[in-house]
Amino acid sequence: MNGLIRKLTSSKLFSALMALLVILIFNVFLNRGFLSITVVDGHLFGQLIDILNRSVPVMILATGMTLVIATGGTDLSCGALLALAGALSISLIRGSSTIVNEYSAIPFPLVITITLAVTTLCGLWNGFLVARLGIQPIVATLIFMTAGRGIAQLITGARNLTTNYAPYSVIGQGWLMMLPVPIFIAAAVLLVVWYFTRRTAFGLFVEAVGVNASAARYSGINSSMILMIVYSISGLCAGVAGLIYASGIMCADANNAGLNYELDAILATVLGGTSMMGGRFYLGGSVIGALIIMALTKSIYAFDVAPESALVVKAFVVVVVVLIQSPFFKNWRDTVKNRRAAVGGGEVR
């Protein structure tokens, strides 16, 4: 039992989970009705559901980001690719229509396929720059971070394109088994990526490349292929998140959709225990990280913190969590633990 507890507390997920728990408990006491969930028209409503639902785009971005960070890189383009996906999908639905349309110009599955294919290709391009041309990930993905929104604006003609096409709204606003559809999409993405990384050798190869790319290559791993796949997955995740985001507001906002989400995704990944140095990655941790960010945002608003100081509060909490996870604090904790163990040993003798 003791061993189990030690295993739990030493797990990378533990501190992230604790942070989330603290934020939730804080809310339970200070934010009335935080835990209450009501059924309206067969749909579940409540703040918890809301946190879960709203964290979905960042959660999906963080899933892709986790793999990228595990290889020792970062993907700054995913927020912009999210905006691109929204712009592309809505303009495909509208076709040449100049009014807000009720029908799609091309078959809906085709809309989704094209959108996801385009963002995946953008991801592949990132991967190509990093793996084949040896450009540093931050610089390589910076290209699409700026160009992605530019292309999105070109597609929408710099307007906020809207649509009333009902099937499209299901992605971001639909309900399934009493819960919002995005939650299921996020779960599906996570499950697929988890399966692909942990039930095949892909996760092992990603970690090997992330820790020591040269040794991975000497062991027969095609590092550049691994990198290109990883960046493509991140692009695909951005596409999925973009569909959900745009569908949620039925509008393609090339300028503001997913603005700074790439940073939230990086933060979620780091909060979840994956090191920016690359190597071991924790998909579950990144999910918790995304939840922490959203729970924090929600509670700040619930406490009527003025919007202008909300970011400061958020930053403060993030600093605390990151400090707790830092090697410095880890060493400190270990020292305390060892000292206690040493004292215990002395008594035995």
Partner: peptide
């Protein structure tokens, strides 16, 4: 160190 071991990973891996 450079081309052989992948330090963070386990002996098994």
């Amino acid at each position: 160190k450079r081309d052989g071991v992948i330090g963070e990973l386990s002996v098994r891996e």
